Computed example of a mutant assay.
Amino acid sequence: MSSQLGFFAVSVPPPTGRIVRPQVVAKNDEVAICSDEEAMARHLEATGNYRILRKLQPRRIVGRPRPEFRRHGVILDTETTGLNYRFDEIIEIGAIAFTFNDAGAIGDVTGVYGGLQQPTIPIPPDITRLRIYAENSPFDMKDHLKARGYRWSDGSDGRPKSWWIELPEEKLEEELHFLRTEIYRWDADPPVKYLTALDRFWVA
């Protein structure tokens, strides 16, 4: 793990009594919307019809933490080949060091560590999974995909720009049948990527 993975989510305060509405101005016979994205998000939330997800920003790692946060903590995350401590092995460790105060408020991130280890035993098949990408699926089928557990990838992380789902290998044929009969309505061959635990939890 080489990023903070959103451990320090900053809560978004509820909208105040005064609703800031996005400004609409005319420019060169075109309509331009004010670039204040947070104001637009709060306006949508205030209607009661929307819930807005905000991208979490990693905190900067500091060399000199603020003195008012004098306590130190570490968040430790591990991935293993299984749950039996006698036989299974750790294959990944991630850690975030941070400071906090007596009230429990998070202060600064002081260090991040991520490491992988090749296990001496094969990774069990039950933790080997695969990803199916429903590329070029019809737009009007998006609600059906969401209801089945598919998530959207915008392509910014190197994955295909499409809906995708992660499944156990034994569910592959069942899922392909669903896509071909319910979504594409033809004998499509969507991309399938086989994953191991190392692949799934690796952060570039």
Rank of each mutant, 00 (worst) to 15 (best):
A188S: 07
P138Q: 09
P125I: 05
L195W: 02
I93L: 07
I61F: 06
L56A: 09
V112S: 00
F7L: 15
P190S: 00
H144A: 13
I93M: 12
R129I: 06
D88W: 12
F98S: 04
A134M: 06
A204G: 15
E182W: 04
V20G: 10
R131D: 01
P168D: 03
G107Q: 02
G82R: 05
F8D: 03
Q4C: 09
R131E: 11
A9D: 03
Q4E: 07
S35G: 07
E175L: 00
R86V: 12
A105M: 15
A95C: 02
V10K: 15
R131H: 00
K55H: 13
H144S: 13
I75S: 00
E175W: 02
A46H: 10
G104W: 04
E135R: 04
S137V: 02
D29I: 13
F7D: 08
E38D: 13
G48K: 09
S3M: 08
Y150N: 01
L56R: 14
G114E: 00
A105G: 14
L56F: 04
T181S: 08
Y184F: 04
G155F: 07
P122G: 03
P119H: 09
R54C: 11
I183W: 03
R86T: 12
S2A: 11
A97I: 01
G111Q: 10
N84C: 14
W163E: 06
W186G: 07
A197V: 14
L53Q: 15
R51D: 11
L44H: 07
A204H: 13
L83Q: 13
V31Y: 12
D108G: 06
I52L: 05
M141K: 13
Q117W: 10
A204I: 04
T78L: 08
L83K: 08
S137A: 12
D126Y: 10
A95D: 02
E169D: 10
A204R: 14
E89Q: 15
T181D: 10
L179C: 03
Y85S: 15
A95V: 08
D143Y: 05
P191N: 00
S137W: 01
G73T: 01
K193W: 05
A134I: 01
G115V: 06
F139I: 12
I91P: 12
I132G: 04
P191S: 05
A105F: 01
L130Q: 05
E37C: 06
K171M: 07
L172Q: 15
A26L: 15
E173M: 06
V20P: 05
V62T: 15
V25T: 12
A9T: 13
F7Q: 12
G111N: 11
E79D: 12
Q117H: 12
E37W: 07
P191V: 05
R59V: 09
V24I: 07
W186C: 10
D199M: 09
E169V: 15
V25L: 08
K27N: 09
V31S: 14
R71Y: 05
T81H: 14
C34K: 07
T99F: 01
Q57C: 10
G48Y: 13
F201Q: 01
P13K: 08
N49G: 11
D140C: 02
N136F: 07
T80H: 07
P124G: 15
Q4P: 02
I61H: 01
R148K: 14
E30A: 14
Q4N: 01
L56V: 09
T181G: 01
E68T: 03
T110S: 12
V203A: 00
R59S: 12
Y113R: 00
E170L: 10
